[in-house]
């Protein structure tokens, strides 16, 4: 005891070899248990099938309580169905996303451009309070039903791994995505190098007059509890009182 070894300056090869002993090979069963993602090219999609009608049963039993019978509810989240037209399905672009379209909500079906996304997400995360409880066939069925609620699939349709690419080609917003921007930190997506918005470095007399274009309305100011209770009790300022007494 007490003699000191000589373990100086390990070669980087020695270090690498030692590091290589950390971790182990994943078994096929383990990969199967966790590798559940489905890509836009449907890599990862399990075989299976489910009809709109099966989906309806499932929806009403396990989904409608949160999302509404017609997937129209915004009780727990934004609506899933609504806002898309047969014309959109043709173009692959959703008109109600255009400015001034007066569409009150942006629904899931207005935005989703890849069907894999819906399938993957329902499979991994829904029902919200029991995620990963659905079988692959269940997911096919309920996805078909959602698309039926959006008038994208007919009521007698059965969605499966063999026809899903055709259904992808019907998605209303399938052509609605762009990666022509500078907000991806790499060149993997093409994109553009130069950011699209730039500010001004002007230091004096930068604008003729300053007009307040938007002023927080009183109801919004007072809708966040008593602001006096959200500020420190010492310092240069206090929180403004917005409790019922103060705003009476």
């Amino acid at each position: 005891q007490g003699t000191a070894g000589q373990k100086m300056a390990e070669s980087s090869a020695g270090k690498r070899a030692a590091l290589m002993r950390l971790g182990r090979t994943a078994t096929p069963a383990e990969i199967k248990a966790w590798d559940i993602d489905v890509r836009p090219d449907f890599k990862g999609l399990p075989k299976g099938r489910g009809s709109v009608q099966q989906g309806e049963v499932l929806w009403e039993a396990q989904c409608a309580s949160c999302h509404g019978t017609f997937a129209e509810s915004s009780d727990v989240f934004t609506p899933i169905a609504g806002g898309v037209t047969p014309q959109d399905m043709k173009n692959g672009r959703v008109d109600s996303l255009m400015p001034g379209a007066n569409q009150p909500n942006r629904t899931t079906l207005m935005k989703v451009s890849t069907l894999s996304t819906l399938w993957d997400y329902i499979h991994r995360a829904m029902p919200w309070n029991a995620p990963k409880s659905l079988s692959a066939d269940d997911v096919y069925a309920v996805t078909a039903y959602i698309l039926n609620l959006g008038n994208i699939l007919p009521a007698d349709f059965t969605l499966s791994d063999s026809n899903i690419r055709e259904v992808q080609a019907r998605l209303p917003n399938r052509n609605g995505m762009s990666t022509a921007h500078a907000l991806w930190p790499g060149k993997e997506l093409g994109g553009i190098a130069k950011p699209d918005v730039q500010g001004s470095a002007c230091m004096s007399n930068c604008r003729a007059e300053v007009v307040i274009k938007s002023f927080l309305p009183d109801y919004a100011r007072n809708a966040h509890g008593n602001l006096a209770d959200q500020s420190r009790l010492v310092g240069p300022s206090r929180g403004i009182r917005t409790d019922s007494q103060a705003i009476a």
Binding site: M98, T117, G176, T179, L183
Partner: peptide, 25 residues
């Protein structure tokens, strides 16, 4: 991977009605 939070959310709606996807920075 076109996941839910890069296809249905965290996509930025532009004036031409397209969404910018994979906006990250």
């Amino acid at each position: 991977y076109g996941t839910k939070d890069e296809t249905i959310h965290y996509v930025d709606l532009m004036p031409d009605g397209t969404h910018r996807q994979y906006t990250s920075i």
